[in-house]
Amino acid sequence: MHQDNQTDQEKEIITYDEDVDGPEHHALMLFKYFLPVMYSITCILGLMGNVLIIIIFLYYEKLKTLTDIFVANLATADMMFLCTLPFLAYQAAHDWIFGDAMCKIIRGMYRVNLYTSMLTLTCITFDRLISITQATSASRYQSNKHKWGKGICVIVWVAAVLFAIPQFIYSTKGNRNECFEIYDPPHIEIILVSFQLAIGFLGPLVAMFFCYTLIAKTLINASSFQKHKSLKIIFTVVVVFIITQLPYNAIILTVILDKDYYVDKHFQKAIIITEAIAYMHACLNPGLYFFVGIKFRKNFWKILKDLGLAKQYKEDTDNFKNTDVESKNISVSTKLEAMSMCQL
């Protein structure tokens, strides 16, 4: 989960004197220079990667599986989330100059897209669980995907909008030209932040551990060349999620429960750094698909061929065909595994 409201720590940092050295000065430098740079890099790389995912799954794969639908929805949510980062980068480097109405829209849409991303990630997790562990019914499950796959995505977006209503209500432009949430009464902040942590971080994390534990047990009992690749994918997805999300969410929860940390400058610097890392999750997904997904790499080379940039396309395609031939010798459950896990 990415915490969207500008915390009190960050608001304090803006008021520090740049000429004063010490922890306050270092925190200010991080806020005014480190965050905008990280936001910009994340935005540019993330938009490029997620646009590529949408092109591949819409125009090359034609959304053939339920996983394809969910991945395209995830890329859409990540892309819309990334579009809010330039506004936040400008605010970090300067002030909020876009008005009160724009403040509510950006903060609200920021949270909508974040919820959509995390809920879709959870849907992908359960989709993989069913496809791999329920071999006898998974084919019927996949055949009915178009009847309710897009409907699930609509439900996810509607739920995300409802969950983000507090951001639309409480976001406002402050007296110092800052865009953040003002909670009245203050205890509402604890309730809303706790809810956001549960939906945006703990929920997906619990789902991943539960589902991927069952998936791992199934794959360990399978005998195929795909087993180790699939286990590697599971391990990579979980580790990346934990590394990018756990530090920031743990710090935010600590600060909300104990207000004394608001005056700790080292904690302020930790929030700024871990926030930037948490936001990187939106641009890391395309990289995961490319390095561990056979189908994604194959279609990437197709795009390069269509653009006249891939001279080695035929050789790579032959390699993919050889891999597909080997795949025909595996069991039914392992075929489903390869479809759901290794061909993202």
Rank of each mutant, 00 (worst) to 15 (best):
L45A: 13
M339H: 04
R107A: 15
A310H: 01
V154W: 06
K265C: 12
I44T: 03
L85W: 00
F195K: 14
A89H: 00
V292N: 12
E12V: 08
L52P: 02
P23G: 09
S194Y: 05
L214S: 10
H25W: 11
I191E: 05
K32S: 09
T254A: 14
G149A: 03
N50I: 06
H228F: 13
G203H: 09
Q3T: 15
T213C: 07
Y16R: 00
N113A: 11
M1W: 07
Q312F: 15
L58D: 04
L121W: 10
T254N: 12
L47V: 11
L129M: 05
A135D: 09
A101T: 13
I14F: 14
D78F: 14
I271E: 09
M341H: 07
H266S: 12
L284E: 06
F31Y: 15
I44E: 03
N249W: 02
I233K: 05
I41F: 08
G200S: 03
I242H: 02
F195M: 15
D95T: 10
T323R: 12
T122G: 06
Q9P: 06
G49I: 08
L28W: 06
V237W: 09
I124S: 03
Y115C: 07
V240Y: 07
F87Q: 01
A89K: 00
T122D: 04
I14H: 09
G174N: 03
G174R: 01
I69A: 04
P23D: 11
I14W: 08
P36M: 02
F98W: 04
N50Q: 02
N221L: 07
Q142N: 10
Y16T: 00
Q142G: 05
V37Q: 04
R140C: 11
K314N: 11
E275Y: 14
I243K: 03
L219N: 08
N144V: 13
Q312C: 13
